[in-house]
C-alpha cells in the first residue's frame, strides 16, 4: 500500500516560477509572491437563498458577503464576489475546508476549488504599468478602489483579481488564474514585468 508520505502535493507554480529575480537588474519594480496552501471553494446560492447564506457566512466567519464585485476579508478568510449570487470563499488554512464546505452546503451549492487556481500576490511601484500590458480593465486608484474585485481576461486567460491595501513598496493586487494555465499566465507576466525588474518570493495564501 502506498505510504502517506509519497503523496506530496505539487505546487501549481512548480516548474513554472521559482523564487529569485528576473528582468532589469536593481529596479525592483514588481514583487510577485507565489501563494500556496490556501483553501478555496465556490458558493452558489439557491434561488432566494442568498440572504440565508449571507447570514450563515456572517455568523460563521464574521464576513459580510459582498453584493458587488468586491472582496471582504477577515483574519482567516476572504469572500470574493464572482457572479450574481456567486462567491469564492478562501481560507488561509486548507485543513478547515472540508468542515466549511459541509457547513455551508446546506445554504449553497459549494464546490471545493482549493487546487483549481494558481494565485499570486503582486506589488511594487511599477505594478500597474506591468499589469496594463494585459489587464483590460482600468486599475487606476480612482477607478478601482481597495477591495474592488474583477473577473476578467488577461492575455486571453480568465483571471480573478482584486486590489489589496497599498503596500510599502506600492500598490498591491492578488490575482488567480486557472491552474492549467499558470504556465501561459507566467509567460505573459514575466515578459510584462521584466522591464521593471521583478522579485519572486514564496508565500502563503
Amino acid at each position: 500500500m502506498a505510504e502517506t508520505a509519497q503523496w506530496t502535493p505539487r505546487s501549481a507554480w512548480a516548474g513554472i516560477a521559482q523564487p529569485g529575480t528576473f528582468g532589469a537588474a536593481g529596479r525592483g519594480g514588481v514583487t510577485a509572491t507565489l501563494l500556496e496552501g490556501h483553501g478555496l471553494a465556490s458558493l452558489i446560492a439557491a434561488p432566494g437563498g442568498a440572504e440565508a447564506l449571507a447570514r450563515r457566512v456572517e455568523q460563521s466567519l464574521g464576513l459580510a458577503l459582498p453584493t458587488a464585485p468586491r472582496i471582504v476579508s477577515g483574519a482567516g478568510h476572504d469572500v470574493i464576489w464572482s457572479g450574481p449570487d456567486q462567491w469564492l470563499l478562501r481560507a488561509r488554512s486548507r485543513g478547515e475546508m472540508p468542515s466549511l464546505i459541509a457547513e455551508l452546503a446546506r445554504y449553497a451549492a459549494v464546490s471545493d476549488q482549493s487546487d483549481a487556481r494558481a494565485a499570486l500576490r503582486l506589488s511594487g511601484p511599477h505594478l500597474r504599468d506591468a499589469l496594463a500590458k494585459g489587464v483590460m480593465i482600468d486599475l487606476h486608484p480612482a477607478a478601482f478602489a481597495v477591495g474592488d474585485a474583477a473577473a476578467t481576461s488577461v492575455a486571453h486567460l480568465g483571471v480573478q483579481l482584486w486590489r489589496l491595501p497599498d503596500a510599502a513598496e506600492g500598490p498591491a493586487f492578488e490575482i488567480m488564474v486557472a491552474r492549467s494555465l499558470a504556465g501561459s499566465f507566467w509567460s505573459w507576466f514575466a515578459a510584462s514585468a521584466a522591464e521593471f525588474g521583478c522579485r519572486v518570493v514564496a508565500g502563503r495564501g
Binding site: 505539487r10 492575455a155 486567460l157 492549467s180 501561459s184
Partner: peptide
C-alpha cells in the same frame, strides 16, 4: 500580435500530470 507569437501564440493548458 504583441506577446502572442511562437509558443505564446495562444494559451496552452497543461494537465496536473504534465510534469
Amino acid at each position: 500580435g504583441g506577446h502572442h507569437r511562437g509558443k505564446a501564440f495562444r494559451p496552452v493548458r497543461l494537465a496536473p500530470t504534465h510534469g
